[in-house]
Every structure is written in structure tokens, then in C-alpha cells.
């Protein structure tokens, strides 16, 4: 809105001085830079292994950006987030397998199921605060996995396999790993952008108000319960779509993919990256998903090294790599209105 004004009148510098690197990171270009890097990566390495790792990382970014809505924006600690991915993956898998449909056509059903799951988990639990909510979500995460493990429609412990690909149009086969990778990157970047934009809107502010002080938010006319439920539902949609991509990527879904560790890893990506800052969360997700692969040289000790690195990061950057800044541009000029009380007081 006031972009041109800001440019000409050079608004005052806000917050602590920033290095050139962080200035690049905070510019609007960084999104395009990241997208370009993701699109060019297969030209550097396109082995089936690296494509597999990169697709998994992209899906992980989607999950982290969804959990960031719940935990980062709204401050609701969710320890069972992976349940939404499970709901999405199983819904897509079961429908596409039983009706021989490409996964793309299962998305409406996946949306309905994940929103339902969000409501079922959210509606009774969101009246709870902090610690209690964390424990209940942890329980729901496990219930989802154990249910999938025991039902016959979900294939029990061995799960569902041989799931059809996302789509097949003429010669373009989305089951081709490279095509699937590009499609995943495209979808993930759109959703990362969407959740970043949501964070900077009226709803996104309402989430932050609830996170900071529920009572004060309520006094300003914000229905805290409704707003929290919306955060949960958005998080569920992001997770569910992550599940569809997951099913398309592996063409199989099994309960082992949705253990508590996965929820913890997504949460770790959000915390490590910087809660509430979508750019930080993307970096956090890439670190969490790629670092163990890059550490393969350490063989059996790689998770030890991984853990140590995480501890080191949290010691030196307790708020994550890139916490939400809490600064914004101000208008450069003062309004024509007289500056209120000060003049009357002749200060």
C-alpha cells in the first residue's frame, strides 16, 4: 500500500542492525531464490536416491508450514500433527485403490476428511490450554495410528500398497520421480506462500493475539475458540495434502510412517526454524529432513551427530534459526491531523 512512500522517504531503520545476509534473507526475493534453487536441484543431482530425498524434504516443508499455523501463529502445542497426514494419506490411498482413481481426484474427499478430523480433534480439546492440549493431541496422534494398525480397511500393520499415481495425462506420467518432484515443489511452494500470507492477515493477527493473550483478544471481540479451531482446520488441510503427496510419492501407506517421532520431527522443524516465521520454518524443515541424509558418512552415528547439532543450535539460537521479528515498517510521514494530546499540552 505505502510501498512507494517508503521507498522515497526512507523509513527509519527498525530493530537491531542487520547483516547483508539477513537483509537478503528478508527481502521479497528470497521466496523466488528458494523456488529457483528447488527447481534447479535436479540438474545438479538427479539420481533416484536424491530425487527421493528431495521429494520427501519438500513434503516435510509442507507439513512444517501447516504445523506453523497451529503452533507458530496460534501457539497451540500439537504433539500429534502427523495424524492429519495419516488421515490424508489413508483417505487418498483407500479411495484411489478401491475405485482405481488417480490420486488427484481423491483431493475433495481428503479435504472433507481432514477438516472433519480437525473438527473432531479440535472441537473438544481447544477449550483446554497449553499443557493439557499437548497431552490430548499426543493421545489423538497415537489413537489415529493404532486405529490404522488394527482396521482391515486400512490394511492393518502392512498398510496399503500399489496406490495409483497422482495423474496420467497422455505421455506425461506423474509417476516419473522427476515429474512428481516438480509437481510436489509447485504445490508445496503455493501452500507455503498461502500460509505465509495467512499469517499477515486479519485472521493471522487474530491467531497471534490468541497466542499472546487470550483474554485480551476476547475483550477485543475475537472469538478465541472459533479462531483456534480455524487454525486447527488450516493445519489439518496442510497435513492432509502432505498425506496425498506422501501416498503419491511412496505409492504405499503404512502405520509405521505415522509414529510419534514423525510428529516430533515436524514440531522440531518449526521450533528450530523459528516459530511463527514461515521463512525460518522452511529452513528448519529442510535442515531436519536433509541433514540426516547429508550425515550418512557418519554411518550408524549419524543420529547422534544430528542430535548434537540440534542441541548446539538451540543453545546458540534458542528462538530458532530465524525467529519472527516482531518489527514492521512504519509510515514515513505524519498525518495532517494534529498530533493529539501533545499539542494541547504544549509538550
Amino acid at each position: 500500500m505505502s510501498e512507494n512512500v517508503d521507498a522515497t522517504l526512507a523509513p527509519q531503520r527498525l530493530g537491531p542492525p542487520r547483516s547483508p545476509i539477513s537483509r537478503l534473507l528478508e527481502s521479497r526475493l528470497i521466496g523466488w531464490v528458494a523456488l529457483a534453487a528447488a527447481l534447479l536441484a535436479p540438474f545438479v543431482t538427479a539420481s533416484p536416491y536424491s530425487l527421493n530425498v528431495m521429494t520427501t524434504a519438500a513434503i516435510f516443508v509442507l507439513l512444517a508450514s501447516g504445523l506453523n499455523i497451529v503452533v507458530g501463529y496460534c501457539g497451540l502445542l500439537d504433539l500429534g500433527y502427523i495424524a492429519f497426514m495419516a488421515v490424508g494419506a489413508y483417505t487418498a490411498g483407500i479411495i484411489s485403490k478401491s475405485f482405481e482413481l488417480p490420486l488427484l481426484f481423491t483431493i475433495p474427499a481428503v479435504l472433507v476428511m481432514t477438516i472433519l478430523a480437525g473438527l473432531i480433534i479440535g472441537a473438544p480439546t481447544l477449550r483446554l490450554r497449553s499443557d493439557y492440549l499437548a497431552i490430548v493431541t499426543l493421545g489423538f496422534g497415537e489413537i489415529t495410528r493404532i486405529t490404522a494398525n488394527n482396521l482391515s480397511v486400512t490394511g492393518g500393520p502392512s498398510g496399503i500398497f500399489g496406490i495409483p499415481g497422482l495423474l496420467k495425462i497422455g505421455g506425461l506420467d506423474v509417476e516419473n520421480p522427476a515429474v512428481l518432484y516438480y509437481l510436489t515443489v509447485l504445490v508445496v511452494s503455493l501452500f507455503v506462500l498461502a500460509s505465509a500470507r495467512l499469517g499477515k492477515s486479519r485472521l493471522g493477527r487474530a491467531w497471534r493475539f490468541v497466542r499472546e493473550d487470550e483474554d485480551a483478544a476476547e475483550a477485543m471481540g475475537i472469538h478465541t475458540y472459533k479462531v483456534k479451531l480455524l487454525a486447527y482446520i488450516f493445519g489439518a488441510i496442510w497435513g492432509g495434502l502432505g498425506g496425498v503427496l506422501f501416498a503419491a510419492h511412496l505409492s504405499a501407506v503404512s502405520p509405521q510412517s505415522f509414529i510419534f517421532l514423525q510428529s516430533a520431527l515436524v514440531l522440531m522443524a518449526v521450533v528450530l526454524g523459528g516459530m511463527g516465521n514461515m521463512r525460518g520454518v522452511v529452513i528448519g524443515a529442510l535442515v531436519i529432513s536433509l541433514l540426516p541424509e547429508l550425515l550418512r558418512d557418519f554411518a550408524s552415528n549419524r543420529y547422534l551427530v544430528f542430535g548434537l547439532l540440534l542441541v548446539v543450535v538451540m543453545v546458540f539460537r534458542p528462538q530458532g534459526f530465524w525467529p519472527a521479528r516482531g518489527y514492521e515498517r512504519e509510515r514515513a510521514t505524519v498525518d495532517v491531523d494534529p498530533p493529539a494530546v501533545a499539542t494541547e499540552q504544549g509538550r
Partner: peptide
């Protein structure tokens, strides 16, 4: 809301004005 900016704090008072929904934001 301690971690939010001064402007955001005042915007909280305007929540009920509406004027946009989540689809507009996206």
C-alpha cells in the same frame, strides 16, 4: 500483546471491522 508491534496491538481493536476473509488473504 507483548511480542507484537504497536500497530498490530491497535489493529486488534479493529478485528470486528472485518473487511477481508481468509481467501482474500491467500
Amino acid at each position: 500483546f507483548p511480542d507484537l508491534t504497536v500497530l498490530d496491538n491497535v489493529r486488534a481493536g479493529m478485528h470486528l471491522y472485518g473487511g477481508q476473509n481468509w481467501a482474500d488473504a491467500i
